[in-house]
Nucleic acid binder design. Structure first.
Lengths: 202, 202
DNA sequence: CATAGCCCTATCCCTCCGTATAGGTTACAT
DNA sequence: ATGTAACCTATACGGAGGGATAGGGCTATG
């Protein structure tokens, strides 16, 4: 029988999805509440036909967590499941080797379809989702330098510190901060930091 | 038959939980993908026996969203359902009049129990969850006023604006900002905003 | 009633932020 | 070759942030 492992720290969500997959998908579903437990189970029982990992769970990370899961389940596929992750996160997950990215906003029937597709060795990544932010960001092209500065801001650094780290003058940082605020529609550096974090720009 | 409305923008989660509640709980379950749709449905069909609202969904807010739902479903109870909300959020939801707060980490059987309890007019708020952050934050007791200020900071407001909104003097805001930075080990307001966001203090 | 915590105010001082203006150098494309 | 994008620099100024110090008023709790 086809075996599937689903890892999610939200027991309510995990149990109900697992029940649905077991019944509607005719699958044997193994459950874990965090990444470590999932890895231990894979190590003891051997690879399952498909692993579904929640992105926001204890121990999970990109790309390390995904790599560990892929290694533990080789040669069978690992896919991510998330309700909140950004398209950028999805892209990074796929870049890390995940076979699919399943948003929790999808319909249950679509999940079954996606799982079947993944079991057949395919990949699943809703292009609509992946491209959904391209439009939002088409006029949001942050240059590498601006991202460097944004990172510094988010760490609470002063312009002077960022300047020293990047080995430029403080005025240059001020310039980048100003353009950052303009591009992000932020009122000041703090606002820019929050917006940048919301948009998962770092 | 007992009717329940569940609102959550994650279709996969909503559908599977709804299916579970319908079957295991012998309930009639109505679904909505956002707060507006839920309110429209309540307005057209009249109050249901219990409303379950996801905290992180379009249109949802504290305390306004909760108040609107309570008004729309009066006199029957409204409870919140969330996977990520902090204990502080749960407390504010209850303060806003919610009859319960159900973390998505709970077991499905516990959900049934909680729903039955809410249907009987009781309240449900896992005290273990409500107190769970007291340990992590034992030396992190932010006063209500400090949270107000932190909110303002996170929105990119200047001290002067926050002062006007809270109807106090600017110096008072500066004082709160200073204590906030000390309590959060932040280097400045921007850092404090990021830390507060990471800790889900708002 | 005394203590403690929270909230508010005041004054002084200095640093940092934010904006404006006016340039300059590369690198790469049409 | 001309344009354009990215990056950097300089000077200058007003306003905001942030720290120190020194209080007063309120309420809850013993």
């Amino acid at each position: 029988m086809t075996r599937l492992l689903i890892a999610d720290d939200h027991e309510l969500v995990r149990e109900t999805i697992a029940a649905y997959l077991a019944e509607a998908g005719q699958l044997e579903v193994i459950q874990s509440a965090d990444l470590e437990d999932a890895l231990v189970r894979l190590a003891s029982t051997g690879p399952v036909d498909l692993v579904l990992l929640d992105y926001t769970m204890p121990g999970m990370s990109l790309p390390e967590g995904v790599h560990r899961a892929i290694d533990a389940n080789a040669p069978n596929p690992v896919a991510l499941l998330s309700g909140t992750a950004s398209p950028d996160t999805a892209r990074r997950a796929l870049a890390a080797g995940a076979a699919g990215f399943l948003p929790k906003t999808m319909a249950p029937e679509t999940l079954i379809t996606a799982v079947r597709h993944l079991l057949n060795g395919g990949t699943y990544a809703p292009q609509q989702f992946l491209e959904s932010d391209q439009k939002n960001r088409k006029n949001l092209h942050l240059t590498p330098r601006e991202l460097d500065v944004l990172r510094g801001i988010c760490e609470g650094k002063a312009n002077k510190e960022i300047a020293r780290d990047l080995e430029v003058q403080e005025v240059t940082i001020k310039l980048h901060v100003k353009t950052l605020c303009r591009k992000l529609n932020a009122r000041n550096r703090t606002h820019a930091a929050m917006i940048g974090r919301d948009l998962d720009l770092l």
